[in-house]
């Protein structure tokens, strides 16, 4: 998979996207035929008309041609309708057993992701990175904390809006392991363009392992640098918005950072997660995403390095 097709409706990686692509090709073929037929008819008409000096009187065949054309149109429409309805039926989440429930909450402009569990201490929380086991149906519960967003992983399924005040249910399934990008599809304000997340479909074993990590509290800082980083985190503005499980920081305003070091991207899948990007992001997130709600943090350089070291250690 090339990087340019990791957010692409025409490269399905699961049964639902596959169904849709099937409907799409059928529609495309029918529509192309119709378009070409119309233009052939028009071409013939023009050729005939060009040779004529005076318009002729109405030929008796015209009404019949019209009836035929309309009948053909209706027939093709019915065929397309049937394929569409069959597709919609196949996509219905009703009555489909799932292995897992994930709650995705849209925020301006990031995604809060919770792996639900009966035991409340078993709920794993992460942000902007959705892991799913390959070949299993996963139920996504969609909610929004502010405005309308839309959950859209083109390689796996169509989109579904996240509407404040209501929860909607969506089922996705990935059949191919891989990394897919997803993006908010309903205009949601200043950073609508940079509100994305990544979906990682991995074998069940890897997935379970990952989930176990996610459930755990944050790693304790080991080196002096990391310890100082934690100190910085808790004593400056970071803790006002972010949470790290296992420390006193518990705010839910921004993304949960308990395992931020293990994530692949920052800023809702806008930049890769590496030391340079992380430092810059902390110092001035607005440079990457103008309008982002995270304020600039002019930390003392040493503090910044320590903080980055600490956050990177949170695997």
């Amino acid at each position: 998979m090339t990087s340019s097709s990791y957010q692409d409706a025409l490269h399905p990686a699961g049964p639902y996207a596959n169904t849709i692509v099937g409907v799409w090709w059928f529609y495309l073929i029918v529509c192309t035929i119709v378009f070409v037929a119309v233009w052939i008819a028009l071409f013939i008409a023009i050729r005939r008309a060009r040779r004529r000096v005076e318009p002729d009187t109405l030929a008796p065949r015209a009404p019949r041609a019209m009836m035929l054309a309309l009948a053909a149109t209706t027939g093709l429409l019915l065929a397309m309708l049937v394929s569409s309805i069959a597709g919609a039926r196949a996509l219905s989440p009703q009555g489909k057993a799932v292995t897992r429930e994930i709650q995705v909450t849209g925020h301006q402009w990031w995604w809060d992701i919770q792996y639900l569990d009966e035991r409340s201490d078993h709920i794993a929380q992460t942000a902007n990175e959705l892991h799913v086991p390959v070949g299993e149906r996963v139920r996504i519960i969609l909610a929004s904390s502010d405005v309308i967003h839309s959950f859209w992983v083109p390689n796996l399924h169509g989109k579904r809006d996240l509407i404040p005040g209501q929860k909607s249910i969506f089922v996705i399934q990935a059949d191919k392991a891989g990394l897919y990008r997803a993006q908010c599809a309903e205009f949601c304000g200043l950073q609508h363009a940079k509100m994305a997340f990544i979906v990682i479909a991995e074998p069940k074993h890897d997935f379970e392992q990952w989930l176990a990590t996610m459930r755990a509290s944050a790693a304790q800082p080991k080196t002096a640098d990391e310890q100082r980083g934690q100190q910085v985190f808790l004593s400056t503005s970071c803790g006002m918005c972010h949470a790290i499980k296992g420390t006193s920081a518990g705010s839910r305003v921004g993304p949960d950072l308990t395992h931020v070091g293990s994530r692949r991207t920052l800023g809702a899948a806008v930049i890769p997660n590496n030391r340079g990007n992380l430092s810059g992001w902390i110092a001035d997130a607005g440079g990457v995403k103008p309008g982002v709600l995270m304020p600039p943090n002019p930390l003392d350089p040493d503090d910044l390095h320590a903080l980055v070291a600490y956050l990177e250690s949170l695997k």
Binding site: L190, A283, D284, G286, G287, P290, G291, P295, P296, N297, P298
Partner: peptide
């Protein structure tokens, strides 16, 4: 004011 200067932060 969508971007704030670091000075405004401190």
């Amino acid at each position: 004011q969508l971007r704030h200067s670091p000075q405004a932060s401190t």
